[in-house]
Write a protein that binds this DNA or RNA. Structure first.
Length: 511
RNA sequence: CGGGGAGUAGCGUAGCCUGGUAACGCACGUGCUUUGGGAGCACGAGAUCGCGGGUUCGAGUCCCGCCUCCCCGACCA
């Protein structure tokens, strides 16, 4: 390719909207251009890198016997209704009507379609196991796009699906994908950590996320250097301190003006935050007000909360009006005297005596609040976020917290989608069995961005050779004085094309 | 959706407070010169100042409404 013909331009200055190195550099070097929030065009350079990343993924998928195919971007809504996700997923699912008024969906992923294909194609245990994958554009109307290519609304994803007879087969497929992922990220030049993760909207029994450590990462990872324990904080369960046994003291109301935060409350009363109970309020998509109680020195882990209450349609912070309607006072709130709310209490609070909690009256708290006596929980469970220095659940050493970007994930789905599609196979025993599925995703563009994050210096991007858009940058100078320069450059250029690994030729004609 | 910030030429910005029909750097075009390390000089093209409305003789500047984008949070495979 001649540089003079390349469809791109470079920018001398950093675009004002770009903050992360990958965003800045991909814009400045002419790899991508933004069309809207979270929507990008890949210019030829960016597209070439994308294709090389795809090719690496393709080779490793093919290596484990995963078969490439392609599924549609637009699905009839009924397909998603059948699995329950049409209603379970909030506004991030793109919905529209076709010309005949039929509800349609812009696919976020393809479990439903695979399920339907299985119902059509799989008859006998003799066909299993199988794995399929495709590269396809996904639309996810994220609440907020950010970080250039890191979190976008439209993106190409490699999603693979394993199709097995049973759990044992799924386990084998799962670890085959795991191995492929390790090879893929190694070839991409990405240092990844596989962490145990929440199954989220996918449903299922086990999942890992492949994470790249990055300060701008949206996930918090709980890591143990001593034993290698690694989990997403969303699901990490770490031991909490033992509560000191003490006799319950009489409930006592105390004036605490202007103490709407735990820090100010603890300072005002001269007690540690660990002697307080914190209330957080949420409204579920199915209209339930949830009051979550954790000790004051911990934060509510919303993933654990959502899972504990089995919220459908998501969960959002409750409004002040909603909290008051249940008889509670924001800033001074507690379940004491509350009504019409689901109370979920962290296990540490449940076994801690004589805490300070809100009196549901502005400017007042209670001392000596005790679970079971002063309020009751609908659910008691682990509700807190792991904190730096907490003990590793595996070996007891202190854990560290790091931010990470999810570059890939693997899920054991189970039978949810095959059930929804009515997909079964006949076993050796001659009776119908459920098909067991797994799903495995890698965001191509996000990986490109992460490669830049990991491979750049103060002068620009330094691509790992395997993903570089061109094998080399040839600069020919002096052709005005000696035509042999052009001849030699032409020859090298032509050879690069013939060899299948093209170079970028920059011809300085004026010297 | 909550908090913060920003929309002026392709990119980065100034001008806005103290209304008088747009400026600077880079990039771009032409010419000349130069050239063993991302050239210099000269000339030049390029902007309905995010959109709509209002105030005013006059609005990039003041007022109202809206849209878009970025950052933090919420949220998120």
């Amino acid at each position: 390719m001649r540089l003079s013909n390349l469809f791109f331009t470079t920018l001398r200055d950093d675009p004002a909207e770009a903050e992360m190195p990958s965003h800045r550099l991909l814009l400045r070097a002419g790899y991508v251009r933004q069309l809207g929030s979270g929507i990008y065009s890949l210019l030829p350079l960016g597209f070439r890198v994308n294709k090389r990343v795809e090719q690496i993924i393709r080779e490793e998928m093919d290596r484990i016997g995963c078969q490439e195919m392609e599924m549609p971007v637009v699905h009839p809504a009924d397909v998603w209704r059948a699995s329950g996700r049409y209603d379970a997923i909030g506004p991030e699912l793109g919905r529209f009507k076709d010309r005949n008024g039929r509800d349609m969906v812009l696919a976020m992923t393809h479990e439903e379609v695979v399920g339907l294909l299985l119902a059509d194609i799989v008859r006998s245990y003799r066909q299993l196991p199988m794995m399929v994958y495709h590269f396809q554009t996904k639309w996810r109307d994220e609440p907020r796009a950010r970080g250039g290519l890191i979190r976008v609304r439209e993106f190409v994803m490699k999603d693979a699906y394993s199709i097995d007879r049973d759990e044992a087969g799924l386990d084998a497929s799962y670890w085959a994908q795991h191995g492929a992922y390790v090879r893929i990220f190694e070839r991409l030049g990405l240092d990844t950590i596989a962490v145990s993760s929440d199954v989220g909207m996918m449903g299922g029994s086990q999942a890992h996320e492949f994470m790249v450590l990055n300060p701008a990462g949206e996930d918090v990872l709980v890591l143990c250097e001593a034993c290698g324990y690694a989990a997403n904080r969303q699901i990490a369960i770490v031991p909490k301190p033992d509560s000191v046994p003490e006799a319950a003291l009489p409930l006592e109301e105390v004036a605490t003006p202007g103490t709407t935060t735990i820090a100010s409350l603890a300072a005002f009363l001269g007690v540690g935050a660990d002697r307080t109970a914190k209330a957080a309020f949420f409204m579920t998509g199915d209209g339930r007000l949830v009051t979550a109680i954790v000790r004051g020195d911990y934060d509510v882990n919303e993933t654990k909360l959502v899972n504990a209450i089995q919220a459908t349609g998501g969960m959002r912070p409750a409004t002040i009006e909603e909290i008051k309607a249940a008889g509670m006072e924001p800033g001074y709130g507690s379940p004491i005297g509350a009504h019409d709310t689901l109370v979920v209490v962290d296990d540490l609070v449940a076994r801690s005596a004589n805490l300070v909690a809100g009196a549901n009256r502005e400017g007042f708290h209670y001392r000596n609040v005790n679970h079971g006596r002063d309020f009751t929980a609908d659910i008691v469970t682990d509700l807190t976020n792991a904190q730096a220095g907490d003990r590793c659940p595996n070996c007891g050493e202190p854990v560290t917290l790091r931010n990470g970007i999810e570059v890939g994930n693997i899920f054991k789905l189970g039978t949810k989608y095959s059930d929804a599609a009515g997909a079964t196979y006949l076993g050796e025993d001659g009776v119908a069995h459920k098909i067991v599925m797994g799903s495995y995703g890698i965001g191509v563009g996000r990986n490109v961005a992460c490669i830049v994050e990991a491979h750049h210096d103060d002068k620009g991007i330094v691509w790992p050779a395997e993903v570089a858009p061109y094998a080399a940058h040839l600069v020919s100078i002096g052709s005005a004085r000696d035509p042999k320069v052009d001849e030699a450059a032409e020859r090298i250029h032509a050879f690069s094309i013939a060899s299948g690994r093209e170079i970028l030729w920059e011809r300085h004609r004026d010297c």
